[in-house]
Design a protein around this nucleic acid. Structure first.
Lengths: 330, 330
DNA sequence: GTGGGTAATTAAAACGTTATAAACACCCGA
DNA sequence: TCGGGTGTTTATAACGTTTTAATTACCCAC
């Protein structure tokens, strides 16, 4: 079932059939209709390998997947949104296992040099991300989750973590809390800086200080982080409010509260980043600001498609605002 | 950077280079070494599109991804294990968005007829799954998560849900609970039957009955399921034990208990299927049996590779036993 | 009626790889 | 000296598509 089959069936040349199927105006409208009808009838589907060999375009989007650590439900929701955005475009989504520990560039290099895809999607962006620099230099289409501090603009989708931190502080203040704590992602990631700035600025404006421990991060192994938090909340100088940047962090905090006999809403308050419906099931219910990961995936797909279409990268930045659909005191 | 480049560099013919790189014994050992060295030096990487066009093999594994409903962390862990198993084999993992609501066969058909991959992986298997039948008829390699009731054996990986249900009942009995409740997956899936059989058999052996409501399933929208459970536990004839087949179900149950003032361990007991580290963070801690999704993914990758290598499907079934690493009373 | 323009179609080449079949060099026994 | 092996290499074709350049058919003006 190839172009030759259709050519034989219609009596046309292979070239004509190929052109007709791509709606080339050089082919007579009647011929185009005939070819389309025949292709439909015979169930013709173009051979991607042949197309790719000829054109160099792979019709593949590579997603760098961190196998080790990832926020709960991050992968599923993001990939779901991405698939949604790419549906019907002929692009397929391929996962590229990424070991972040090693050289951050190897995975990206492999994809670019081996022409393993037409575009790349990745996250955990750093302020001067080597992958962003490399891909920009190579002129290879990509979108990253998170921003950089390069002066040259590049396609990116990010959540406004600075706003998240600021609003979270304000909500704790509204409950009379003045000694907040927040566990940050590892400092090398850009969004860690954003969180820090937002929190520090909001705290300074309110005349309070925020505790940002540097012996522990969001990537600390779960049991270790849980131990740390339990011990931290056991001390008399414990924080009276905790900002949780993610669902696992929220669960860790809630477990630590329970283990120390602290009642959320009375002894301590929690504001968390919410990324799935799970939060509705937690008791006590906690204050949360939403990060819509499915929307993030959709935006990344959309941006990448526009980038592949040759659109100028200057306009291809998206910043998603924290959703405020649920408040504890609402 | 193609075979021609290497051929030019070494003075050999393209055919010879191709053979040498695939370690063909017809090529002299010294020549093979020379070619290998040259390829390495020039950083040669074969063009997948050309290989695929010539051989028909795509070196792609297609994973059918349900975008709508999925257990918490299911996607991430399973894909992680799969990537692990496939690492270094040259196979890449591609996601194929699957709308289960429509014809269950369309996605699989598209992949087979369009030669979009060399193998397929999917889940939510039914007793007489049309996809399994179609793929078996076509002789197309695949592995599914879950078993069928066809007489002809096919590659599959499954969790022993029957054992899970049986052990769960026994654990509840050990706590003196005699009126257990379990919410099942939709009845059309095979693993729903396994859960049912295991639970019913264990209950019968103990001389008790188990409540298996059929107006609600694991796929019921979360808020609706939460409402149902809250109301169910509010009635005086409420169950004294709940078996939760998944993490979301466990959270729903715990929320309903909290909302009704029921204390787990005193008024009611819960046994759940655990698939991630999240459970360690829930308070009160609940009894759980582990399903290792990463291991599941690894097994599926392994089985599929062996199937692709032409191994007889008779031996390609894996049944994973429930892990018992944590018990409430341990 | 002949040259030139336009619209429609087509032949041929190419992408990079592998499989088939053929060629080559060499040595051995007769 | 020659036929027949053996070990090694090579020319050629093919996979299915798109692109470049060429061809055909037709109409119009001169």
């Amino acid at each position: 079932m190839t172009l030759r089959t259709i050519a034989g069936e219609t009596g046309l040349a292979v070239t004509t059939v190929s052109r007709a199927l791509s709606n080339d105006p050089r082919i007579a409208a009647t011929t185009r209709a005939l070819v389309a009808e025949t292709a439909e009838r015979l169930g013709y589907v173009p051979d991607r390998a042949a197309q790719r060999l000829r054109t160099g375009r792979t019709k593949v989007i590579q997603v760098l997947l961190n196998l080790d650590h990832e926020f709960l439900s991050f992968t599923h929701e993001l990939l779901g949104g991405l698939s949604e955005a790419l549906a019907g475009t002929g692009y397929s989504v391929t996962l590229f296992p990424d070991i972040l520990e090693r050289d951050r560039l190897t995975a990206v290099r492999q994809i670019v040099e081996g022409r393993l895809g037409d575009g790349i999607i990745f996250n955990r962006t750093e302020p001067f991300d080597t992958r962003v620099r490399y891909l920009t230099e190579q002129g290879f289409p990509f979108v990253c989750h998170g921003r950089t501090e390069f002066s040259v603009p590049h396609p990116s989708v990010d959540y406004d973590n600075e706003a998240f931190a600021r609003i979270a502080i304000q909500r704790l203040l509204a409950h009379g809390r003045t000694r907040p704590l927040m566990i940050l992602p590892p400092a090398r990631y850009t969004f860690s800086q954003h969180l820090r700035w937002g929190a520090v600025a909001a705290a300074r404006d309110a005349g309070i200080t925020i505790e940002l421990p540097d012996e522990i991060t969001l990537d600390t192994p779960q049991d270790q982080a849980a131990d740390w938090m339990r011990q931290r909340l056991a001390r008399s100088d414990r924080p009276d409010g905790v900002i949780c940047v993610g669902e696992v962090a929220a669960l860790i905090t809630m477990a630590a509260c329970a283990d120390n006999g602290l009642q959320i809403g009375r002894d301590i308050d929690v504001v968390a980043k919410r990324a799935s419906g799970v939060f509705d099931l937690l008791r006590p219910r906690i204050d949360a600001l939403t990060e819509d990961l499915r929307e993030t995936g959709r935006a990344m797909g959309d941006i990448l498609l526009r980038s592949l279409a040759g659109e100028d990268p200057t306009g291809l930045q998206v910043l998603l605002a924290p959703g405020t659909d649920f408040r504890q005191d609402a």
